[in-house]
């Protein structure tokens, strides 16, 4: 399956899971909102141009916004992580040229520790930006903001861990003859 088709299917699947499974769960606490949809952006291939990446992030977030009737909220957060992603990959990638040898970020392509850092930082950025924008609209206190960021990020990381274990992505090593 080509990368494009695969990613289009993933796009629909992530939105579907987020809207019709995770958002349907009755919240455990008002701090806890299970977000996993942004993993789609973290899984996009290395080779995608940066402008396209930002645009894909925006459109992906906007699609979710259509379902939650919150125009711009998720789009802003997704654009943010899509823009920051290449910088982070440049810093974290261990050996020279790994982004040419592998298709997309994963444990095999980046190594466990860098990949975990990559996930952790972008999850935090996504949730901080998202909760901040929501928090500005409501006059809550600072502890509300902090608690929500931490609780939401915790749940997100847990969900990502489960997803990574369930859907183990095999990354083929590509030689540079191709």
């Amino acid at each position: 399956m080509s990368d494009l088709v695969k990613n289009i299917i993933r796009f629909a699947l992530f939105i579907f899971i987020q809207v019709f499974v995770l958002f349907q769960i009755q919240p455990l606490h008002r701090f806890v909102i299970p977000y996993i949809y942004f993993l789609y952006i973290l899984w996009l291939p290395f080779r995608i141009p940066r402008v396209t990446l930002t645009l894909v992030g925006f459109l992906f977030g906007l699609t979710l916004d259509f379902f939650t009737v919150s125009p711009g909220l998720h789009a802003a957060a997704c654009t943010m992580i899509a823009y920051l992603r290449p910088f982070l990959i440049n810093i974290l990638i261990p050996q020279e040229g790994a982004e040419q040898n592998y298709k997309s970020p994963s444990i095999t392509s980046m190594g466990l520790a860098p990949y975990a850092t990559y996930i952790l930082i972008l999850t935090l950025v996504h949730n901080i930006w998202l909760v901040l924008l929501e928090w500005i609209n409501v006059s809550g206190n600072f502890w509300f903001f902090l608690g929500k960021v931490l609780a939401t990020s915790g749940i997100s990381l847990l969900l990502i861990l489960v997803t990574e274990l369930l859907f183990y992505r095999k990354e083929k090593f590509r030689t540079n003859t191709a």
Partner: peptide
């Protein structure tokens, strides 16, 4: 890249605050 990011971010924020 940066300008494009800013534009996208501003579009999103505009939509959010002028809902």
């Amino acid at each position: 890249n940066f300008l494009f990011f800013m534009v996208m971010q501003l579009v999103a924020l505009y939509m959010l605050f002028h809902f």
